[in-house]
């Protein structure tokens, strides 16, 4: 797990969180995991679902550990390296708890849905009630277990809420095939049908997106 100070992407944690993502992936498919950390998810997808799963990770020390563990992981940057992949190279492109840390989230999403048929995106929800409450009461940037660094040193430079993400998907023309809110440990939360409640009580959002049939996203 990336715990080095100054690392740009937040550390991955919690097997439960990864299992939720894995449950969205069909067996025997081609998968690219962006910001794969130590490769726990790609190993899980290879072993339990027979997927051809590969990873990109920005932190070189973490990449070295993943490769030494026998996993196909390359050092690379979500913001710059996705453009080198061909169209439709993967069935799923996964971005787990990394969207808020990239420089150009909208462009990264476009690239994901260019090189993959589907995208799976999870992110910490900035609309959670505890964050709203802290901001209201203290008037300062909220600090929680997920948002644990001061505003001037956080790698999470593009926080968004579950509702924000729905709006972006609509604007970009992505169809949301599945979505759910989960708590910090990755346990599924029960607000499946009510985005407003999910946005208030879900600590993270998890989305399965697909390119809308016909037209690609507007450029």
């Amino acid at each position: 797990m990336a715990k080095v100070p100054g690392v740009r992407y937040v550390a991955k944690n919690m097997r439960v969180d990864l299992e939720l993502i894995a449950s969205m992936v069909a067996p025997g498919t081609r998968v690219l995991d962006i910001g794969c950390g130590d490769g726990a998810l790609i190993e899980h997808l290879f072993r339990t679902k027979g997927c051809d799963a590969r990873g990109i990770e920005i932190d070189m020390a973490v990449v070295t550990r993943a490769v030494a563990h026998g996993l196909p992981v390359m050092q690379g940057d979500a913001d710059t390296d996705l453009s080198h992949y061909p169209d439709h190279a993967f069935d799923y492109v996964i971005l787990s708890r990394t969207l808020q840390a990239v420089e150009q989230p909208r462009e990264v999403l476009r690239q994901m849905l260019r090189i993959g048929t589907r995208a799976i995106v999870s992110f910490p929800n900035f609309g959670h009630w505890s964050l709203r409450w802290q901001l209201l009461v203290t008037g300062r940037m909220p600090m929680t277990k997920t948002w644990a660094r001061m505003w001037y040193e956080t790698p999470n430079i593009h926080p968004c809420t579950i509702r924000d993400f729905f709006v972006l998907c609509q604007a970009e023309g992505y169809s949301v095939e599945q979505w759910l809110a989960a708590d910090e440990a990755g346990r599924r939360a029960p607000w499946r049908r009510w985005p407003m409640l999910a946005n208030l009580f879900g600590e993270q959002g998890l989305f399965l997106l697909r390119r809308s049939s016909g037209e690609g996203p507007p450029h």
């Binding site: 070189m60 990449v63 992981v73 390359m74 050092q75």
Partner: peptide, 18 residues
């Protein structure tokens, strides 16, 4: 080389050793 291999969606691992 890594980017050329990405262009053909090859299975690639890539590390720089310090």
């Amino acid at each position: 080389i890594a980017r050329a291999l990405n262009q053909v969606a090859a299975n690639i691992s890539f590390v720089e050793i310090v």
